[in-house]
């Protein structure tokens, strides 16, 4: 079956080789561990030599195999690459492949947009035993700041773990990037997500509490959004605001007469924090922030999985609550960060 698939990877009319990514993915799952790349190169000997010239001197076989796969898979998106000729687009592909390899094997981190891009490009490449690297912050954090967030910040390896399910990690194989072969296809957050998120929100709680103390306590005259954002960013995460015009919301409570204005929903690391309404986006956001900060007024915050409405159906959502759970009055969700076919992945 594997070889049959490989034969599909024939020459493109313009002379370059196309390796259909979809097929490869299927195959990668199927053969699992068999060396797809070398098989492919055996059948395309004219490419083998050229590929070998792209190898870095210090690359190990394992690293090179993975990077080769990355290059071959993505070659079709750079149609101007001609094997055997150095060109800017080839260099760009090589560069992206190095970004990915550096991330996976050395533990380097790049700007979020770039990371997202290469992880998407690498979708489905399977690497056995990804090395564990310690980021600089983690080391520094230990000595200088008593900031326990270092541990939880999504380092490459942590993320890799989140990507694979138990079966995979048992067999010592991890899918790199999002969506390997075997992924739970259940809708909503995975059951362990709430527990996973809890430590982060404990820290956030702490930082919010301090911030409020310094701002003179919780009250109506604060810039709630600013405080919340600063705290979230101080905890090395980002606040995601979703705006929806009020009239576009289907599940409005019956008693609501207003039809104009904006509604804002705040999430942090996919966890819902609050919803607010206002005449414009800014005031909606401020209101949502105020609501979110109210949650922090209790003695602690908890991440829970709650049922709530989203686009007319009931879904399970991750919600931040104080200790008295009042799940009854949750406003309908404006966004839903858990696509049905993917597990929870913190944004890279």
């Amino acid at each position: 079956m594997g070889s049959k698939n490989l034969r599909i990877a024939a020459c493109h009319p313009t002379g370059h080789v196309v390796l259909p990514p979809g097929k490869i993915r299927v195959m990668a799952e199927w053969v699992r561990g068999r060396d797809v790349v070398s098989e492919f190169l055996v059948q395309n000997p004219h490419l083998a030599q050229w590929m070998e010239s792209l190898r870095g001197y210090c690359e190990t076989n394992k690293q090179w195999r993975a990077r080769q796969e990355f290059i071959l898979r993505n070659m079709e998106t750079f149609p101007s690459i001609i094997p055997g000729v150095y060109s800017p687009s080839l260099d760009q592909l090589l560069s992206l492949s190095m970004v990915w390899a550096n991330h996976v094997f050395l533990g380097c981190r790049y700007p979020p947009g770039l990371m997202q891009k290469v992880l998407e490009m690498a979708e489905g490449i399977v690497i056995q035993e990804v090395p564990v690297r310690q980021m600089r912050d983690e080391i520094m954090g230990k000595g200088k700041r008593s900031n326990p967030s270092g541990r939880e910040t999504d380092s490459s390896t942590k993320k890799l773990k989140a990507g694979g399910n138990e079966a995979e990690s048992n067999s010592g194989v991890r899918a790199v990037g999002r969506a390997g072969g075997a992924v739970p296809s259940k809708t909503g957050p995975p059951p362990q997500a709430a527990a996973e998120q809890q430590p982060f929100f404990n820290r956030l709680y702490k930082s919010v509490a301090w911030k409020l103390v310094s701002a003179g306590g919780f009250g109506p005259n604060l810039d709630h959004f600013d405080i919340l954002r600063a705290c979230v960013e101080a905890s090395k995460a980002s606040l995601i605001c979703v705006f929806v015009p009020l009239r576009d919301i289907p599940d409005l409570p019956a008693g609501c007469a207003q039809r104009e204005g904006q509604v804002c929903e705040l999430r942090c690391r996919t966890v819902y924090m609050g919803t607010g309404y206002g005449r414009d986006e800014d005031s909606a956001r401020a209101m949502a922030s105020k609501e979110a900060l109210k949650v922090f007024q209790g003695r602690k915050v908890t991440v829970r999985i709650c049922r709530r409405r989203f686009q007319g159906r009931d879904v399970e959502d991750l919600v931040l609550q104080d200790e008295q759970a009042r799940s009854s009055a949750l406003p309908p969700a404006l966004s839903y960060p858990f696509p049905p076919e993917q597990p929870v992945t913190p944004p890279p």
Partner: peptide, 15 residues
Amino acid sequence: PDSSIIDFYPDDFAI
């Protein structure tokens, strides 16, 4: 991100 040498400049690195 489209630079052909972007991989030389990671934001953060492991130690």
